[in-house]
Simulated scan of single mutants.
Amino acid sequence: MKQPLAYVHPEAKIAPNVVIEPFVTIDKNVVIGEGSRIGSNATILEGTTIGKNCNIFPGAVIGAVPQDLKFVGEETTVEIGDNTTIREFATINRGTKARNKTVIGNNCLLMAYVHVAHDCIIGNNVILVNSVQVAGEVVIEDWAIIGGLSAIHQFVHIGAHVMVAGGSLVSKDIPPFIKAGRERLSYVGVNSIGLRRRSFTNEQIRDIQDCYRVLFQSSLNNSDALIRIEAELPASNERDDILLFVRNSQRGIIRGYASGNEA
């Protein structure tokens, strides 16, 4: 259902039961899946694909060109999965030649004034609370929750099931399954409540805790801690996810609280 005061480019591909409210602008080369709703004054620009049953609130801008001086007009996209909600005045930029696309997964909630920059990859079931600012080429894995007013540095990688405290400055990678907080940002424990809500067993959570006791509380450097974890702790999907994440970290991981927070 399209309101007469909305502008929809004739080349946009809109499912028949999409609701488009007044003063919406939808550009060419846009695809919007069935059951979605586009709130008044939202702007959906060229190269955007929005999945099924999404809810785009008033004032959101999706698919604007990157705020990156290296961008020279290359053809790039924004891809948003199914059942995702984009709240008021959130902004999501297209990709650049770095990845060619910015991706938001299924069942995500991006609250008001969130910004997701070029070439970010946001997984499924992710929550970005009000005014989270995500710089370019960031990866946030499934089920992560980022507290309001947090700022995430370019190229940072945040693992699955992570919870980040509000107002955090995230300049290092955050391994999966943990809570991160304090100033400077550091490990403050395993996200056990979140994991139980997602049907992790007590045994799985204990195994994750054992891994992080070695990594963050044993006074070993990261390389030696990984060797000990692999040698002494039983193999599991969770253990292997932690090992792989830390070994592949490009920016280095956040500190453990046992190591202190000196500048």
Rank of each mutant, 00 (worst) to 15 (best):
M1H: 09
M1I: 10
P10V: 15
P10A: 15
E11Q: 15
I14D: 00
I14H: 00
N17R: 10
N17D: 13
V18F: 00
I20T: 03
V24K: 09
V24H: 08
D27I: 14
V31Y: 10
I32H: 00
G33L: 00
G35L: 07
G35S: 07
S40T: 11
S40D: 00
A42R: 02
I44R: 03
E46F: 03
E46S: 11
G47P: 03
G47T: 01
T48W: 01
T49Y: 09
A60G: 03
V61C: 09
I62R: 02
I62Q: 02
L69W: 09
F71G: 05
V72F: 14
E79I: 14
D82Y: 10
A90T: 14
N93W: 04
G95A: 10
K97Y: 07
N100A: 14
V103F: 11
V103D: 09
I104M: 10
M111Y: 05
M111S: 05
H115G: 02
V116R: 02
N124I: 09
Q133V: 15
A135G: 05
A135V: 01
V139I: 14
E141N: 11
E141G: 04
D142N: 13
W143M: 10
A144L: 06
L149E: 12
S150K: 06
A151V: 14
A151D: 09
Q154F: 03
F155D: 01
V156C: 11
V156H: 05
I158M: 10
A160K: 10
A160L: 04
G166A: 08
L169F: 13
V170R: 03
I174A: 03
I174R: 01
P176R: 02
P176F: 05
F177H: 00
E183R: 12
E183F: 08
S186C: 13
S186Q: 14
G189L: 04
G189F: 04
V190W: 05
R196M: 13
R198K: 14
S199L: 15
F200P: 05
I208A: 01
R213I: 00
L215R: 06
Q217L: 11
S218K: 12
S218Q: 12
S218R: 11
S219K: 15
S219F: 13
N221P: 14
S223A: 15
E230L: 08
N237F: 13
R239L: 06
D240Y: 06
L243I: 14
L244R: 15
F245W: 04
F245M: 07
V246P: 00
V246N: 03
S249A: 12
Q250L: 10
G252N: 05
Y257G: 00
A258Q: 09
